[in-house]
Nucleic acid binder design. Structure first.
Lengths: 350, 350
DNA sequence: CTGAAAGCGCTTACAG
DNA sequence: CTGAAAGCGCTTACAG
């Protein structure tokens, strides 16, 4: 697409360090010294080399550099997330990126869509590229990678989820307190007089979704309320599906819920839209896990249990780079939860 | 963090192809053949090699592979965006990622925050990692990279923006029709009876923001309306800043606008919040560039000129891989615009 | 069908 | 302060 530079020795291929050395009339090693900013080089040589670099538009090849250096410096890390188009994950990515930048490190990211095969494939892809470390959202049970020792020598921080299964894992974890968050949401509704409280969320095969359901059940049990199985719904994939699902569900139901716990941002968006379309937004109380843009401007305002995606990403990044710097303490388990936000929808009484 | 595998020859370092060859009792080249799925290998050898690979948990090093292969296959591409936490850009990233996946290619992405120095730094970082191609949002005037021939041999697709300046560039472009979109928004408001129409947007030093302002001015000129400079505001950085800015601006203004064009998603969110907080949401008409989550559930619903981030990303990715496959037609300029969406806020009359 | 040698672009370890 | 040689982990080009 672009034109090659004015005639020089490197027609076609990119100039190499040897090309620079020849142009500058010095040895390969001297160029290497200049490129890496090593002190002990005669200023006049530095001049000549830099001139040659400028003239040839030489850009060093970090892949070649690291082939010999082996893993001495981190040049890129990997982030396996579920879907980068979900604002929760893109917020986390931004947080990781900020920490990586401080270490002159770039982030390779990819969406697994919760498919364990794809998750494993991506982890392998990252290993093949020799990322210095990985942040992984291990959603998708049955991952072979997570249980193998394939990732030895590569620090891993689990974010948002942990692998399911009985065995403990040796990795660091950064996530919100899914169980306590959901418990808090449900008991908030119960405290406002509700007993027919519904739970809408992702498949319970998902670590975070499972804990959130547990938290919901905790609150119901604490209040001695029997859970009506007809009020526990899972399986929507996006906001559009949840909208349709909620409308069908509410219209078929004999005894409607007076309050709903939405366990995730897309669930919340679909459900709130459904309630508005049915004209029930002032009748049925709703609380959502994850904050949503414009939530405060709805009528009623949407009460939520927020997460702090940017902060989660930063912490995961910091821990990862601590590991890369040699920190070898026992696995870190950072499980936090910002305060619940009341905006109206969660304070509707039955 | 993790334990090394049971005793084998590669204590400490990752196993190499040579380790596999020794374990399997074959030559280096035979392992290479098996790893790359070349046909002409005796089945029994394939067995032995695969067993050794399993045993050692060997993962090939693609960086070493490509050192010799040079740019024959694309293993990663770069995406320089403005802010991955902005849903517009994360949607685009998702679209690029989908196309890259079809080519077994990973995406390296990074946020420039619109800083030209950072933009140049990121482009250089990507070149150093020898990405096969790049999608770039060239926001930030004064980039040296974009005007140099530093990127020769590396296909580049510009997304959302193009470099500012008099000179033409030889790169492909995928973006929405900023000027026409904004013209449409303003003339929609004018058609509903407004003459005091305000424009709130990013700095005019930004390609897209500039065009959107032009489109606004086009519509005003077409309607023979003089633009009041007090009604053209730029400079907010995020929704929170825009909210404060709009409230201050509206309270200081003698003659308020009856309608507002918000040129970007964060501008829209901040402005709509400000109007709601001032109780003016039914008094002043608003239209926004970019669709926003929950926009349809507000009172009144938010009318927008949407973009299709996923689609933009996909097209940029497709064009990039066409170039990588050898397509050498003249630069592609894809400038599209989905239909305007009426939801109420843009149809308020003065 | 299999393998020994040279080379990709750089760094390390060593000698001057 | 400078450079020639060996090597990082793989592939290419060639010979058998």
């Amino acid at each position: 697409v672009n034109q090659p530079p004015s005639a020089n020795a490197t027609s076609g291929r990119r100039p190499t360090m040897l090309d620079v050395a020849r142009t500058a009339g010095v040895s390969l090693k001297s160029v290497s010294r200049v490129v890496n900013g090593e002190a002990a080089v005669r200023p006049e040589l530095v001049e000549r080399v830099n001139a040659a670099i400028q003239h040839l538009r030489y850009v060093p090849d970090v892949r070649a550099r690291h082939l010999r250096q082996q893993g001495s410096v981190a040049t890129s890390i990997g982030f396996v997330l579920v879907d980068v188009a979900n604002p929760f994950f893109s917020g986390v990515l931004r947080g990781i990126e900020e920490v990586a930048r401080q270490h002159d490190c770039l982030v390779l990211s990819a969406s697994s869509d919760g498919d364990p095969k794809r998750l494993d494939q991506l982890i392998e892809d990252f290993l093949e590229r020799r990322v210095a470390g990985m942040v992984i959202v291990p959603r998708g049970s049955g991952s072979a990678m997570l249980s193998s020792d394939m990732m030895r020598d590569v620090p891993v921080v689990f974010l948002d989820c942990e692998p399911l299964g009985p065995t403990d894992h040796p990795f660091d974890v950064v996530r919100s307190d899914h169980r306590e968050g959901a418990r808090r949401m449900a008991s908030h509704l119960i405290r406002h007089g509700h007993r027919r409280v519904a739970f809408l969320g992702d498949d319970v095969g998902i670590f975070s979704a499972n804990l959130r359901l547990q938290g919901f059940l905790d609150a119901m049990a604490d209040a001695l309320i029997d859970v009506d199985p007809a009020l526990v719904i899972t399986g929507g994939r996006d906001a559009t599906e949840w909208n349709a699902l909620v409308r069908a569900w509410l219209s078929e139901l004999d005894s409607k819920p007076t309050a709903i716990v939405c366990a995730q941002n897309f669930v919340t968006i679909g459900t709130v839209a459904a309630l508005h379309e049915l004209g029930l937004q002032h009748k049925i109380a709703v609380v959502g896990y994850d904050d949503v843009e414009l939530a405060g401007l709805l009528q009623p305002g949407l009460s939520v249990q927020p997460q702090e995606p940017l902060q989660l990403g930063r912490r995961a990044g910091e821990i990862l780079f601590d590991r890369l710097a040699g920190f070898s303490g026992s696995p870190i388990h950072e499980v936090g939860l910002p305060p619940f936000v009341e905006r109206g929808s969660g304070e509707i009484r039955p």
